[in-house]
Design a protein around this nucleic acid. Structure first.
Lengths: 218, 218
DNA sequence: CCTACCGATCGGTAGG
DNA sequence: CCTACCGATCGGTAGG
Protein backbone atom coordinates (compact mmCIF):
# COMPACT_ATOMS: atom_id res chain seq x y z
CA UNK A 1 0.00 0.00 0.00
CA UNK A 2 1.31 3.39 -0.87
CA UNK A 3 -0.23 6.87 -0.99
CA UNK A 4 -2.35 7.76 -3.99
CA UNK A 5 -0.26 8.92 -6.97
CA UNK A 6 -2.18 12.20 -7.17
CA UNK A 7 -1.21 13.13 -3.62
CA UNK A 8 2.41 12.40 -4.36
CA UNK A 9 2.32 14.59 -7.44
CA UNK A 10 0.78 17.35 -5.38
CA UNK A 11 3.13 17.27 -2.43
CA UNK A 12 6.49 15.99 -3.66
CA UNK A 13 8.34 17.49 -6.63
CA UNK A 14 9.90 20.89 -6.14
CA UNK A 15 12.20 22.80 -8.48
CA UNK A 16 15.08 20.53 -9.27
CA UNK A 17 16.24 21.30 -12.77
CA UNK A 18 17.19 24.82 -13.72
CA UNK A 19 16.25 27.46 -11.10
CA UNK A 20 13.56 30.03 -11.92
CA UNK A 21 14.51 32.36 -14.71
CA UNK A 22 13.81 35.75 -13.18
CA UNK A 23 13.24 36.78 -9.56
CA UNK A 24 9.70 37.92 -10.22
CA UNK A 25 8.63 34.58 -11.62
CA UNK A 26 7.46 33.10 -8.37
CA UNK A 27 6.82 29.43 -8.91
CA UNK A 28 4.35 29.33 -6.08
CA UNK A 29 1.90 27.06 -7.84
CA UNK A 30 0.75 29.78 -10.13
CA UNK A 31 1.81 27.83 -13.19
CA UNK A 32 0.08 24.79 -11.86
CA UNK A 33 -3.16 26.74 -11.58
CA UNK A 34 -2.76 27.99 -15.11
CA UNK A 35 -2.33 24.44 -16.35
CA UNK A 36 -5.38 23.36 -14.42
CA UNK A 37 -7.55 26.09 -15.89
CA UNK A 38 -6.27 25.53 -19.41
CA UNK A 39 -6.82 21.81 -19.07
CA UNK A 40 -10.35 22.24 -17.72
CA UNK A 41 -11.25 24.49 -20.60
CA UNK A 42 -9.82 22.24 -23.28
CA UNK A 43 -11.08 19.02 -21.73
CA UNK A 44 -14.51 20.53 -21.67
CA UNK A 45 -14.51 21.83 -25.20
CA UNK A 46 -12.79 18.99 -26.98
CA UNK A 47 -12.94 16.10 -24.56
CA UNK A 48 -10.07 14.43 -22.75
CA UNK A 49 -8.88 12.20 -25.55
CA UNK A 50 -9.05 14.87 -28.22
CA UNK A 51 -7.02 17.28 -26.11
CA UNK A 52 -3.26 16.87 -26.36
CA UNK A 53 -0.86 17.72 -23.61
CA UNK A 54 0.72 20.02 -26.18
CA UNK A 55 -2.59 21.93 -26.49
CA UNK A 56 -2.67 22.37 -22.75
CA UNK A 57 0.96 23.41 -22.55
CA UNK A 58 0.46 26.00 -25.28
CA UNK A 59 -2.67 27.37 -23.63
CA UNK A 60 -0.66 27.82 -20.44
CA UNK A 61 2.24 29.37 -22.32
CA UNK A 62 4.60 26.44 -22.13
CA UNK A 63 6.14 24.00 -24.57
CA UNK A 64 5.52 20.34 -25.20
CA UNK A 65 7.04 18.52 -22.25
CA UNK A 66 6.50 21.06 -19.51
CA UNK A 67 3.14 19.96 -18.12
CA UNK A 68 4.88 16.80 -16.96
CA UNK A 69 6.99 18.84 -14.60
CA UNK A 70 3.80 19.74 -12.75
CA UNK A 71 1.73 16.60 -13.23
CA UNK A 72 2.72 12.97 -13.43
CA UNK A 73 0.57 12.28 -16.43
CA UNK A 74 -2.28 13.54 -18.54
CA UNK A 75 -4.59 11.42 -16.42
CA UNK A 76 -3.31 13.07 -13.25
CA UNK A 77 -4.17 16.42 -14.76
CA UNK A 78 -7.68 15.23 -15.47
CA UNK A 79 -8.08 13.98 -11.95
CA UNK A 80 -6.75 17.25 -10.54
CA UNK A 81 -9.32 19.19 -12.57
CA UNK A 82 -12.17 17.07 -11.24
CA UNK A 83 -10.89 17.14 -7.70
CA UNK A 84 -10.54 20.92 -7.70
CA UNK A 85 -14.01 21.23 -9.23
CA UNK A 86 -15.63 19.03 -6.63
CA UNK A 87 -13.95 20.76 -3.72
CA UNK A 88 -15.14 24.11 -4.95
CA UNK A 89 -18.64 22.72 -5.44
CA UNK A 90 -18.70 21.25 -1.95
CA UNK A 91 -17.59 24.56 -0.46
CA UNK A 92 -20.30 26.43 -2.32
CA UNK A 93 -22.85 23.87 -1.27
CA UNK A 94 -21.84 24.08 2.39
CA UNK A 95 -22.20 27.85 2.26
CA UNK A 96 -25.73 27.46 0.89
CA UNK A 97 -27.01 25.36 3.75
CA UNK A 98 -28.34 26.94 6.93
CA UNK A 99 -29.09 24.32 9.56
CA UNK A 100 -32.58 25.22 10.75
CA UNK A 101 -33.91 26.78 7.57
CA UNK A 102 -37.15 25.98 5.81
CA UNK A 103 -36.70 22.97 3.49
CA UNK A 104 -38.13 24.76 0.47
CA UNK A 105 -35.81 27.71 1.00
CA UNK A 106 -32.90 25.34 1.43
CA UNK A 107 -33.78 23.50 -1.76
CA UNK A 108 -33.80 26.79 -3.61
CA UNK A 109 -30.36 27.67 -2.29
CA UNK A 110 -29.02 24.22 -3.17
CA UNK A 111 -30.32 24.54 -6.70
CA UNK A 112 -28.94 28.03 -7.06
CA UNK A 113 -25.56 26.98 -5.69
CA UNK A 114 -25.54 24.07 -8.11
CA UNK A 115 -26.21 26.39 -11.03
CA UNK A 116 -23.45 28.69 -9.84
CA UNK A 117 -21.08 25.76 -9.82
CA UNK A 118 -22.12 24.73 -13.32
CA UNK A 119 -22.29 28.18 -14.90
CA UNK A 120 -20.34 30.60 -12.74
CA UNK A 121 -16.59 31.21 -12.56
CA UNK A 122 -14.66 27.96 -12.89
CA UNK A 123 -17.55 26.59 -14.90
CA UNK A 124 -15.43 24.16 -16.88
CA UNK A 125 -14.36 21.98 -13.99
CA UNK A 126 -17.59 20.21 -13.11
CA UNK A 127 -18.72 19.59 -16.68
CA UNK A 128 -15.39 17.88 -17.23
CA UNK A 129 -16.11 15.72 -14.24
CA UNK A 130 -19.61 14.95 -15.47
CA UNK A 131 -18.53 14.00 -18.96
CA UNK A 132 -15.05 12.59 -18.73
CA UNK A 133 -15.15 10.36 -15.67
CA UNK A 134 -14.83 7.43 -18.03
CA UNK A 135 -11.25 8.42 -18.76
CA UNK A 136 -10.14 8.17 -15.14
CA UNK A 137 -8.30 5.26 -13.70
CA UNK A 138 -9.97 3.04 -11.12
CA UNK A 139 -8.44 4.62 -8.05
CA UNK A 140 -9.03 8.14 -9.19
CA UNK A 141 -12.58 7.42 -10.23
CA UNK A 142 -13.24 6.02 -6.80
CA UNK A 143 -11.79 9.11 -5.14
CA UNK A 144 -14.02 11.40 -7.19
CA UNK A 145 -17.03 9.18 -6.57
CA UNK A 146 -16.59 9.67 -2.85
CA UNK A 147 -16.73 13.44 -3.21
CA UNK A 148 -19.78 13.09 -5.43
CA UNK A 149 -21.54 10.99 -2.84
CA UNK A 150 -20.90 13.65 -0.23
CA UNK A 151 -22.30 16.26 -2.53
CA UNK A 152 -25.42 14.28 -3.33
CA UNK A 153 -26.09 13.24 0.22
CA UNK A 154 -26.61 16.86 1.22
CA UNK A 155 -29.80 16.90 -0.84
CA UNK A 156 -31.34 13.93 0.87
CA UNK A 157 -32.66 15.33 4.17
CA UNK A 158 -34.06 18.33 2.34
CA UNK A 159 -35.89 16.24 -0.22
CA UNK A 160 -37.11 13.86 2.44
CA UNK A 161 -38.55 16.70 4.47
CA UNK A 162 -40.32 18.04 1.39
CA UNK A 163 -41.65 14.60 0.55
CA UNK A 164 -42.94 14.21 4.08
CA UNK A 165 -44.80 17.50 3.87
CA UNK A 166 -46.29 16.59 0.50
CA UNK A 167 -44.53 19.31 -1.42
CA UNK A 168 -42.50 16.70 -3.29
CA UNK A 169 -44.62 13.96 -4.77
CA UNK A 170 -42.08 11.33 -5.65
CA UNK A 171 -39.80 8.99 -3.80
CA UNK A 172 -37.03 11.20 -2.44
CA UNK A 173 -34.29 9.02 -3.89
CA UNK A 174 -35.68 9.03 -7.41
CA UNK A 175 -36.54 12.70 -7.06
CA UNK A 176 -32.92 13.48 -6.28
CA UNK A 177 -31.72 11.63 -9.36
CA UNK A 178 -34.28 13.30 -11.60
CA UNK A 179 -33.74 16.78 -10.18
CA UNK A 180 -29.96 16.64 -10.30
CA UNK A 181 -30.26 15.33 -13.83
CA UNK A 182 -32.45 18.24 -14.85
CA UNK A 183 -29.94 20.66 -13.37
CA UNK A 184 -26.84 18.95 -14.74
CA UNK A 185 -28.29 18.82 -18.20
CA UNK A 186 -28.39 22.61 -18.25
CA UNK A 187 -24.72 22.35 -19.15
CA UNK A 188 -26.00 21.45 -22.62
CA UNK A 189 -28.31 24.38 -23.15
CA UNK A 190 -27.81 27.18 -20.67
CA UNK A 191 -26.34 30.22 -22.32
CA UNK A 192 -25.53 33.14 -20.07
CA UNK A 193 -26.11 35.52 -22.95
CA UNK A 194 -29.51 34.29 -23.97
CA UNK A 195 -32.89 33.23 -22.66
CA UNK A 196 -33.26 33.13 -18.94
CA UNK A 197 -30.91 34.13 -16.14
CA UNK A 198 -29.78 31.66 -13.53
CA UNK A 199 -32.33 33.13 -11.14
CA UNK A 200 -35.10 32.60 -13.65
CA UNK A 201 -34.06 29.04 -14.32
CA UNK A 202 -33.90 28.45 -10.59
CA UNK A 203 -37.44 29.78 -10.26
CA UNK A 204 -38.60 27.55 -13.09
CA UNK A 205 -37.03 24.51 -11.47
CA UNK A 206 -38.66 25.27 -8.13
CA UNK A 207 -42.03 25.76 -9.79
CA UNK A 208 -41.64 22.55 -11.74
CA UNK A 209 -40.61 20.31 -8.86
CA UNK A 210 -42.33 21.73 -5.81
CA UNK A 211 -46.04 21.25 -5.27
CA UNK A 212 -48.27 23.52 -3.24
CA UNK A 213 -48.21 23.06 0.47
CA UNK A 214 -51.18 21.07 1.67
CA UNK A 215 -53.48 23.01 3.93
CA UNK A 216 -53.96 20.05 6.15
CA UNK A 217 -52.80 21.01 9.59
CA UNK A 218 -53.34 24.07 11.78
CA UNK B 1 -23.08 21.69 -53.85
CA UNK B 2 -23.09 17.94 -53.64
CA UNK B 3 -25.05 15.40 -51.62
CA UNK B 4 -24.01 14.82 -48.03
CA UNK B 5 -21.14 12.36 -47.72
CA UNK B 6 -23.14 10.15 -45.39
CA UNK B 7 -25.86 9.68 -47.99
CA UNK B 8 -23.27 8.73 -50.57
CA UNK B 9 -21.76 6.19 -48.24
CA UNK B 10 -25.19 4.76 -47.60
CA UNK B 11 -26.40 4.54 -51.16
CA UNK B 12 -23.38 4.11 -53.41
CA UNK B 13 -20.70 1.47 -52.85
CA UNK B 14 -21.64 -2.06 -53.67
CA UNK B 15 -19.40 -5.13 -53.71
CA UNK B 16 -16.55 -4.28 -56.01
CA UNK B 17 -13.47 -6.05 -54.74
CA UNK B 18 -13.57 -9.79 -54.33
CA UNK B 19 -17.06 -11.29 -54.54
CA UNK B 20 -18.65 -12.83 -51.44
CA UNK B 21 -16.86 -15.87 -50.18
CA UNK B 22 -19.66 -18.34 -49.84
CA UNK B 23 -23.19 -18.36 -51.21
CA UNK B 24 -24.79 -18.17 -47.79
CA UNK B 25 -22.90 -15.05 -46.79
CA UNK B 26 -25.43 -12.60 -48.13
CA UNK B 27 -23.87 -9.18 -48.01
CA UNK B 28 -27.24 -7.54 -47.76
CA UNK B 29 -26.15 -4.92 -45.30
CA UNK B 30 -25.95 -7.40 -42.51
CA UNK B 31 -22.27 -6.68 -41.94
CA UNK B 32 -23.00 -2.99 -41.99
CA UNK B 33 -25.55 -3.46 -39.22
CA UNK B 34 -23.06 -5.45 -37.21
CA UNK B 35 -20.51 -2.68 -37.54
CA UNK B 36 -23.10 -0.13 -36.49
CA UNK B 37 -24.05 -2.06 -33.39
CA UNK B 38 -20.45 -2.75 -32.45
CA UNK B 39 -19.56 0.89 -32.95
CA UNK B 40 -22.51 2.11 -30.89
CA UNK B 41 -21.54 -0.16 -28.05
CA UNK B 42 -17.89 0.79 -28.04
CA UNK B 43 -18.47 4.49 -28.61
CA UNK B 44 -20.77 4.46 -25.65
CA UNK B 45 -18.51 2.55 -23.34
CA UNK B 46 -15.17 4.08 -24.20
CA UNK B 47 -16.03 7.24 -26.09
CA UNK B 48 -15.43 8.02 -29.74
CA UNK B 49 -11.77 8.99 -29.48
CA UNK B 50 -10.81 6.12 -27.24
CA UNK B 51 -12.40 3.61 -29.58
CA UNK B 52 -10.21 2.46 -32.45
CA UNK B 53 -11.53 1.32 -35.79
CA UNK B 54 -9.63 -1.86 -35.04
CA UNK B 55 -11.73 -2.37 -31.89
CA UNK B 56 -14.86 -1.99 -33.93
CA UNK B 57 -13.65 -4.28 -36.67
CA UNK B 58 -12.75 -6.97 -34.16
CA UNK B 59 -16.10 -6.67 -32.40
CA UNK B 60 -17.80 -7.19 -35.75
CA UNK B 61 -15.52 -10.11 -36.59
CA UNK B 62 -13.38 -8.33 -39.15
CA UNK B 63 -9.77 -7.21 -39.41
CA UNK B 64 -8.19 -3.79 -39.31
CA UNK B 65 -9.05 -2.14 -42.61
CA UNK B 66 -12.43 -3.68 -43.28
CA UNK B 67 -14.74 -1.11 -41.68
CA UNK B 68 -13.58 1.30 -44.38
CA UNK B 69 -15.19 -0.87 -46.99
CA UNK B 70 -18.55 -0.08 -45.40
CA UNK B 71 -17.97 3.46 -44.11
CA UNK B 72 -15.95 6.30 -45.53
CA UNK B 73 -14.36 7.14 -42.22
CA UNK B 74 -14.58 6.68 -38.50
CA UNK B 75 -16.57 9.90 -38.36
CA UNK B 76 -19.06 8.59 -40.89
CA UNK B 77 -19.59 5.58 -38.65
CA UNK B 78 -20.28 7.86 -35.71
CA UNK B 79 -22.77 9.84 -37.71
CA UNK B 80 -24.48 6.68 -38.92
CA UNK B 81 -24.89 5.51 -35.34
CA UNK B 82 -26.50 8.77 -34.30
CA UNK B 83 -28.69 8.94 -37.37
CA UNK B 84 -29.96 5.42 -36.87
CA UNK B 85 -30.58 6.15 -33.19
CA UNK B 86 -32.55 9.29 -33.88
CA UNK B 87 -34.69 7.67 -36.56
CA UNK B 88 -35.59 4.85 -34.23
CA UNK B 89 -36.37 7.36 -31.48
CA UNK B 90 -38.57 9.40 -33.77
CA UNK B 91 -40.47 6.30 -34.84
CA UNK B 92 -41.04 5.28 -31.23
CA UNK B 93 -42.12 8.78 -30.37
CA UNK B 94 -44.58 8.94 -33.25
CA UNK B 95 -46.10 5.66 -32.13
CA UNK B 96 -46.60 7.09 -28.66
CA UNK B 97 -48.69 10.05 -29.74
CA UNK B 98 -52.42 9.77 -30.23
CA UNK B 99 -53.84 12.95 -31.72
CA UNK B 100 -56.83 13.72 -29.50
CA UNK B 101 -55.57 12.19 -26.28
CA UNK B 102 -55.45 13.80 -22.85
CA UNK B 103 -52.24 15.88 -22.46
CA UNK B 104 -51.26 14.20 -19.21
CA UNK B 105 -51.68 10.76 -20.75
CA UNK B 106 -49.69 11.86 -23.78
CA UNK B 107 -46.91 13.19 -21.57
CA UNK B 108 -46.73 9.88 -19.84
CA UNK B 109 -46.43 8.03 -23.12
CA UNK B 110 -43.78 10.44 -24.35
CA UNK B 111 -41.75 9.93 -21.20
CA UNK B 112 -42.14 6.20 -21.37
CA UNK B 113 -41.17 6.12 -25.04
CA UNK B 114 -38.15 8.24 -24.22
CA UNK B 115 -37.06 5.82 -21.52
CA UNK B 116 -37.55 2.94 -23.92
CA UNK B 117 -35.28 4.67 -26.38
CA UNK B 118 -32.64 5.27 -23.73
CA UNK B 119 -32.80 1.92 -21.99
CA UNK B 120 -34.50 -0.58 -24.28
CA UNK B 121 -33.03 -2.53 -27.19
CA UNK B 122 -30.60 -0.40 -29.19
CA UNK B 123 -29.89 1.53 -26.02
CA UNK B 124 -26.38 2.51 -27.00
CA UNK B 125 -27.29 4.64 -29.98
CA UNK B 126 -28.87 7.67 -28.32
CA UNK B 127 -26.37 7.94 -25.48
CA UNK B 128 -23.66 8.08 -28.10
CA UNK B 129 -25.54 10.92 -29.73
CA UNK B 130 -25.99 12.71 -26.42
CA UNK B 131 -22.35 12.42 -25.41
CA UNK B 132 -20.29 12.39 -28.56
CA UNK B 133 -21.89 15.06 -30.75
CA UNK B 134 -18.76 17.12 -30.20
CA UNK B 135 -16.82 14.71 -32.37
CA UNK B 136 -19.04 15.21 -35.43
CA UNK B 137 -18.14 17.45 -38.31
CA UNK B 138 -20.12 20.61 -38.95
CA UNK B 139 -22.43 19.22 -41.63
CA UNK B 140 -23.16 16.04 -39.79
CA UNK B 141 -23.79 17.84 -36.53
CA UNK B 142 -26.28 20.05 -38.31
CA UNK B 143 -28.05 17.05 -39.79
CA UNK B 144 -28.40 15.42 -36.38
CA UNK B 145 -29.50 18.70 -34.82
CA UNK B 146 -32.41 18.84 -37.25
CA UNK B 147 -33.62 15.44 -36.15
CA UNK B 148 -33.24 16.48 -32.54
CA UNK B 149 -35.32 19.56 -33.11
CA UNK B 150 -38.08 17.45 -34.59
CA UNK B 151 -37.95 15.18 -31.61
CA UNK B 152 -38.08 17.98 -29.10
CA UNK B 153 -40.82 19.90 -30.86
CA UNK B 154 -43.23 17.04 -30.31
CA UNK B 155 -43.17 17.82 -26.59
CA UNK B 156 -44.14 21.43 -26.97
CA UNK B 157 -47.91 21.32 -27.58
CA UNK B 158 -48.28 18.80 -24.81
CA UNK B 159 -46.37 20.88 -22.29
CA UNK B 160 -48.15 24.03 -23.36
CA UNK B 161 -51.54 22.42 -22.85
CA UNK B 162 -50.47 21.27 -19.41
CA UNK B 163 -49.15 24.72 -18.56
CA UNK B 164 -52.42 26.28 -19.68
CA UNK B 165 -54.40 23.97 -17.43
CA UNK B 166 -52.13 24.68 -14.47
CA UNK B 167 -50.79 21.17 -14.19
CA UNK B 168 -47.37 22.36 -15.22
CA UNK B 169 -46.18 25.35 -13.25
CA UNK B 170 -43.23 26.57 -15.26
CA UNK B 171 -42.66 28.17 -18.61
CA UNK B 172 -43.25 25.40 -21.12
CA UNK B 173 -39.93 26.01 -22.87
CA UNK B 174 -37.86 25.82 -19.71
CA UNK B 175 -39.95 22.92 -18.51
CA UNK B 176 -39.11 20.99 -21.65
CA UNK B 177 -35.40 21.56 -21.16
CA UNK B 178 -35.52 20.59 -17.50
CA UNK B 179 -37.70 17.54 -18.06
CA UNK B 180 -35.71 16.18 -20.98
CA UNK B 181 -32.58 16.77 -18.94
CA UNK B 182 -33.96 14.78 -16.04
CA UNK B 183 -34.84 11.93 -18.38
CA UNK B 184 -31.60 12.02 -20.36
CA UNK B 185 -29.53 11.97 -17.21
CA UNK B 186 -31.01 8.59 -16.35
CA UNK B 187 -28.42 7.25 -18.76
CA UNK B 188 -25.97 7.84 -15.91
CA UNK B 189 -27.79 5.96 -13.20
CA UNK B 190 -30.57 3.76 -14.48
CA UNK B 191 -29.74 0.13 -14.06
CA UNK B 192 -32.22 -2.36 -15.42
CA UNK B 193 -31.17 -4.88 -12.80
CA UNK B 194 -31.53 -2.67 -9.77
CA UNK B 195 -33.80 -0.16 -8.12
CA UNK B 196 -36.86 0.84 -10.00
CA UNK B 197 -38.30 -0.40 -13.28
CA UNK B 198 -38.86 1.94 -16.19
CA UNK B 199 -42.53 2.07 -15.28
CA UNK B 200 -41.70 3.10 -11.76
CA UNK B 201 -39.31 5.77 -12.89
CA UNK B 202 -41.94 7.01 -15.32
CA UNK B 203 -44.43 7.23 -12.47
CA UNK B 204 -41.92 9.11 -10.36
CA UNK B 205 -41.27 11.58 -13.14
CA UNK B 206 -44.97 12.20 -13.67
CA UNK B 207 -45.49 12.70 -9.95
CA UNK B 208 -42.54 15.05 -9.75
CA UNK B 209 -43.44 17.26 -12.69
CA UNK B 210 -47.22 17.25 -12.85
CA UNK B 211 -49.25 19.21 -10.35
CA UNK B 212 -52.79 18.44 -9.32
CA UNK B 213 -55.52 19.60 -11.63
CA UNK B 214 -57.13 22.79 -10.38
CA UNK B 215 -60.76 22.42 -9.52
CA UNK B 216 -61.54 25.79 -11.01
CA UNK B 217 -64.09 25.27 -13.76
CA UNK B 218 -67.30 23.24 -14.00
C1' DC C 1 -13.22 -8.13 -46.91
C1' DC C 2 -7.94 -9.30 -45.73
C1' DT C 3 -2.87 -8.29 -45.59
C1' DA C 4 0.59 -5.31 -45.27
C1' DC C 5 1.95 -0.80 -44.63
C1' DC C 6 2.44 4.44 -44.57
C1' DG C 7 2.39 8.99 -42.31
C1' DA C 8 1.18 11.53 -38.59
C1' DT C 9 0.34 12.26 -33.93
C1' DC C 10 0.88 11.77 -29.19
C1' DG C 11 2.20 10.76 -24.26
C1' DG C 12 6.09 10.73 -21.96
C1' DT C 13 11.32 11.08 -20.93
C1' DA C 14 16.38 12.49 -20.89
C1' DG C 15 19.32 15.86 -19.83
C1' DG C 16 20.27 20.11 -19.00
C1' DC D 1 10.72 24.62 -17.63
C1' DC D 2 12.84 23.89 -22.66
C1' DT D 3 14.79 21.01 -26.51
C1' DA D 4 15.10 17.07 -28.80
C1' DC D 5 13.53 12.62 -29.30
C1' DC D 6 11.65 7.71 -28.69
C1' DG D 7 8.09 4.14 -29.06
C1' DA D 8 3.61 3.07 -29.77
C1' DT D 9 -0.74 3.68 -31.74
C1' DC D 10 -3.99 4.87 -35.06
C1' DG D 11 -6.82 6.29 -39.19
C1' DG D 12 -6.69 5.30 -43.58
C1' DT D 13 -5.09 3.13 -48.19
C1' DA D 14 -3.20 -0.07 -51.86
C1' DG D 15 -3.90 -4.02 -54.11
C1' DG D 16 -5.75 -8.03 -54.53
Amino acid sequence: MHPAPAAVATLARRPRGRPRKTPDERDDGNRRQQLLKAAARLFRRKGFDATTTRDIAAAAGMTAGSPFYHFESKGALLHAVMDAGMRAALARQAAAIEPGADPAATLRRLIRAHFDTLHGPGRDFIPVMLYEARALGRRQRAAIATLQRDYESAWEPVLEALAASGRLRADAGLARLLILGALNWSVQWFDAKKRASLDEVTDAAMALFLHDAKETSA
